[in-house]
Amino acid sequence: MPATDAAVRPPSSAPAAHRPPRRRHRRLRLVLRYALLSIGAVVVLFPLYMAVVNSLLAPSQIAHQPPPFFPLHPQWGSYRKAWTEGDLAVYLRNSAIQTTVIVAGQLVTSVLAAYAFAFLEFPLKRTLFVVFLMTLMIPFEVTIATNLSTVSSLGWFNTFPGLTVPFLATGFGTFLLRQAFLQIPRDLREAAQLDGYGHLRFLWSVAVPLARPALAALGVFSFLSAWNQYLWPLLVTGNDNSVRTVQIGLKQLINTQLDQINVSLAGTVIAVVPLLVLLVVFQKQLVRSLTSGAVK
């Protein structure tokens, strides 16, 4: 289920609710609010809605003027075409592999590094933490020139390592998890230490379970950014569609199926559905990761 209303204050009860004019006024305001919300929803949803509508129309119907806003005779063939002829099944599988590797890798490297920063004392700790934060200042885009030659000299063009390895660590994720680990009382670590638990066992059986909300937030965030990557997959998957991701597949689809807009739109809908599911299920975690830093 979407969103929790728990975070929202209950509507303030006006002291004079029994007076009729006031009540009518409030009713009107409520109606206005719903109207405003609905307009917003239409604006936001309209493009995606039209994509769904058009994906269900035959190309000849799409070009019809005025444009049809409802698919009276839905044609599901476009989805089958996108899936098979557009190789979307392959692209989706590739995206799933690429995303899974990146999410898992980022979670692992961030958990390990964050634990060191939160629970261990070692020389150069401060400096190394600044180094991690500095990675946030270097956008990936300014590193592509050299990364391309690195990847090519490793023979990683058109391979999953080429797609994923550069993203297996994240300064943001390390930071997020370090914050979560710092919330864990030191006493817990010391109690475990007296009981004979080493750092790695403590990490696994106490720190990680307690940081689950932050791990989920990071996981969802990593998933989102990995799935939606565009520039890097475009550059490293060249013209080999055996590892091409869904985003690049869409570009391909629009280029090759110019006369079949319904097929490329069907592909688009297929590509966006996994993420909409993600949003519905993990809305809270996603919001948490997107707003870290926005509010205390």
């Binding site: 969103a3 209303d5 929202v8 936001v44 869409l250 688009t268 590509a271 966006v272």
Partner: peptide
């Protein structure tokens, strides 16, 4: 404001967060 159906409006309003640039471009 905590009114009926707000959870759905919130979901809709935040939905473009998950759309990729390629999806947006095609649409």
């Amino acid at each position: 404001k905590a009114i009926r159906g707000m959870a759905w409006f919130r979901l809709i309003f935040s939905s473009t967060v998950v759309t990729s640039v390629a999806v947006a471009a095609v649409v």
